[in-house]
Design a binder for these strands. Structure first.
Lengths: 245, 245
DNA sequence: TATGGTTGTCTATGTTAATAGACATTTCGG
DNA sequence: CCGAAATGTCTATTAACATAGACAACCATA
């Protein structure tokens, strides 16, 4: 599987950023697990066909992310290498699916507001456009590391206390249960990958230029009636989406 | 809903490339469908808070992709805006799922070779490491536009003529049928998003810095025995993956 | 045909990215 | 303790990116 390590010039993407992305990929692929450190700067410079200083810029960016740490005289140590495997199935729940991959998972409520449903939200939830719905903005983390941020919409008529219940119970599943909904399944998921915008960079603590996977999903009750319209943005370099059919 | 149009400086990604990506996204979102053209350069420059020349670089890149065409005195016309919706389910077939979204779909065989199965391939296909398997490299296009490129592995013992049959029938499904396998289902799919490498840029005719979604999938016969290990890279700005559960 | 709005082209200037080389500093093993 | 190997720091130079302003060329329309 020796993926070619090629960098392109004059593409609008700086060489040091391309190289940083490639090294990050190699780390999460486990290419350097033997030694627990990245190859020497001079070797990397040779592999990528660039100057050592360019590699240093790339490594500095990765050190800034906390992914590696350079030690003078020794080398550049790998600090982290995880890529969480994230199941997407009919029963997708955040913390549950991660299983024993993380010691601690957390979902933090950023904001909540009640507002009239916009076109795509109304269509997804099968309610009248303009009907009131509750919007929750969350950031989910594993072991203190942000993994995804999401914007969810719930029909207010059915789940009037969604925000309060979530804040109390710290779980969408439990907040649903508090409204008398014991079970729900995913009926639709659409995925798109793109560069992270400014908000996402801040929320997910990403380095600029990073990629997010945006999943637009609809959950429904056992009768097939939509209960949640969610748009979740995953930090692409921290997750692997596993589709279970 | 009104996604912020923010560009970041000193990120290693040139402003013109960030802007080109954002405009591409707006086009495929249909933001400019009313007028059929992109806003004037001066307006875009104002929106993004950059110089007009920087916007011109971005538009030049998009014109290079064939996405827009500038006409002096009139404006910059939109030439294309598609984003194919691509279903991923237990029965994922390339051409079939696209339905009426494209007039013509094509799968082109780039190369085929028989080689001993590497670690992950052997594990995925549940054959002994080193056992012979057939590798097919394909590029799939819709209406002449490359959408994905893939590398597939098949156990040679069971599908000895995979390459020949595919070349004749132009379809994995039909090539399976020619080997006596009438039906198969997807048992595993993993998704990762990253920047395209040099090969993918060329094969998919992408502009440098573009994003690909890499899907690693395993198909199995009705008895659950794996028959295909595939790694497919989609041009992220041309597709939307729709997960059907 | 005159005018306003749009893209095309040119010059100039400052900033960032990348290369090149030299040498200092630190670590580790012989 | 010495020397090889690694990272850290400095200077200098070139190419690419970004800004700024001016004006030409072209299109639509009043």
């Amino acid at each position: 599987m020796n993926a070619k390590k090629a960098v392109e010039r004059q593409t609008g993407v700086a060489l040091w950023r391309q190289i940083a992305d490639l090294i990050r990929l190699s780390i999460s692929n486990g290419d350097y697990d033997q030694m627990g450190m990245v190859p020497p700067e001079t070797v990397l410079a040779g592999q990528f066909g660039v100057n050592r200083h360019t590699v240093r810029s790339a490594l500095a960016a990765l050190a800034d992310e906390g992914l590696v740490q350079a030690i003078q005289g020794r080398g550049t140590m790998i600090q982290r290498k995880e890529r969480l495997s994230f199941p997407i199935s009919r029963r997708t729940r955040f913390s549950q699916g991660l299983g024993d991959q993380a010691r601690e998972t957390e979902a933090k409520l950023l904001s909540h507001v009640t507002l009239p449903a916009a076109g795509d939200v109304a269509t997804g939830l099968r309610i009248a456009p303009g009907a009131p719905c509750i919007q929750l903005d969350l950031v989910s983390s594993a072991d203190g590391r942000p993994v995804s941020c999401s914007t969810s919409f719930f029909p207010e008529s059915r789940f009037p206390d969604m925000a309060e219940q979530f804040e109390r119970l710290r779980s969408i599943t439990k907040a649903f249960a508090a409204h008398g909904l014991e079970d729900y399944v995913r009926i639709s998921t659409e995925l798109v990958a793109r560069h992270a915008n400014a908000d996402e960079l801040a929320l997910l603590r990403l380095s600029p230029g990073a990629i997010v996977i945006e999943a637009t999903a609809i959950n429904a009750d056992p009768d097939g009636l939509p209960v949640q319209f969610a748009r979740t943005r995953f930090a692409a370099d921290r997750v692997k989406l596993k589709i279970e059919t």
